[in-house]
């Protein structure tokens, strides 16, 4: 089987999210990577070094600069004439593009896979991860998004794939990119951070969040996450949200502070290796999944912890 993997990137750097998809694809067959973008040649070179990648296709065109789904999907659909499976990371980019490709191919997408059981059978979480479905696809071509935390990352060195260029991109004339507000931060990205410090509604304000959570995260070199309640209340930006409808994370250590542990939140972090919870309510559901729990007022305990680590 020949697979086509959508490379996640920003026209300069390949993102880590790509690497788990390469691993998933290699369990299906030969891995071809696809870079769509504009001025993205260096990404093609990075992808060619990833262990296990046989060929890199680079589609470099101004119409693809922001990877708009309307322009990307027809190109990917045409490449699928010579590939058997399309795999994208379950990032906002992948989730935007893959279903559009699937519909163009008249294929039912398999979302957010956790494992490859065989060429046509996969497991995927449903009901916020409270159930795991094993599904078998009868479609000739497969369109799949891959949960990044469920597969090991392929090595970024060791590969020596050939690179070819793909033409034929066009502006579908349906959408235009206007602007982007991307927070620049020295902090590790949530989906690749080894440690995450996450704050909930209990923080009470963005000032308190900054005052209590940030120093601990700085001390630990950690990424910062949040519950939906903390995001909705405006303590932190949207992309901090961990959960069923936010980011799915599985760091070495996840420290939940003032978070109750609603099923939607647990869905995003319960595969973390070690879960630490600090909550003043000893019956908070978060303690049912926490390896280490501390019943305490976070406004006392967290600054003390920051001082002692």
């Amino acid at each position: 089987m020949k697979t086509l993997v959508l490379v996640e990137h920003d026209n300069m750097n390949m993102k880590d999210a790509t690497l788990a998809v390469v691993t998933a694809a290699s369990q299906l067959g030969e891995v071809h990577a696809l870079v769509i973008g504009s001025g993205c040649a260096s990404v093609g070179e990075q992808a060619a070094k990833v262990a296990g990648v046989a060929t890199v296709h680079v589609a470099d065109d101004v119409a693809l600069a922001n990877q708009l789904a309307e322009n990307a999907a027809p190109l990917i659909a045409s490449l699928m004439e010579s590939h058997d499976a399309f795999l994208a990371p379950a990032t906002t980019t992948g989730k935007n593009i893959a279903p559009r490709v699937a519909a163009l191919l008249d294929v039912m997408q398999i979302s957010d896979i956790l494992s490859v059981e065989s060429e046509d059978t996969f497991t995927r979480p449903i009901y916020a991860g409270n159930a795991i479905a094993t599904v078998k696809s009868s479609d000739a071509k497969k369109v799949i998004t891959v949960r990044g935390t469920a597969f090991d990352k392929a090595a970024t060195e060791g590969g020596s794939a050939s690179i070819d260029t793909v033409g034929g991109a066009a502006d579908a004339g349906l959408s235009t990119f206007v602007s982007e507000e991307i927070a620049k931060s020295e902090r590790p990205e949530l989906t690749s951070a080894k440690i995450i410090v996450s704050g909930g509604r209990a923080l009470g304000s963005s000032e308190k969040f900054e005052e209590v959570i940030t120093p601990l995260a700085d001390k630990l070199g950690a990424g910062i996450g949040a519950s939906r309640a903390a995001v909705d209340a405006g303590y932190v930006p949207n992309d901090y949200q961990v959960g069923q409808t936010g980011k799915i994370v599985a760091p070495e250590v996840y420290i939940a502070i003032g978070i109750s542990g609603a099923i939607q939140h647990l869905a995003g972090m319960k595969d973390s290796k070690i879960i630490v919870a600090i909550n003043k309510d000893e019956d908070a559901p978060i303690f049912q999944v926490a390896d280490i729990g501390l019943v305490a007022d976070l406004f006392d305990a967290v600054p003390e912890l920051t001082g002692k680590v």
Binding site: I110, A133, V289, A290, V295, A301, E304
Partner: peptide, 30 residues
């Protein structure tokens, strides 16, 4: 349908660990 659901299973359950007394114990445990 194009997909057939073969089985639906419970995810692995995570066991609750232990509660520690205070911040010092938390640091020691970490």
């Amino acid at each position: 349908p194009r997909l057939t659901t073969i089985t639906v299973a419970e995810p692995p359950v995570r066991q609750a660990g232990e509660k520690v007394e205070d911040v010092d114990a938390l640091v020691a445990k970490l």
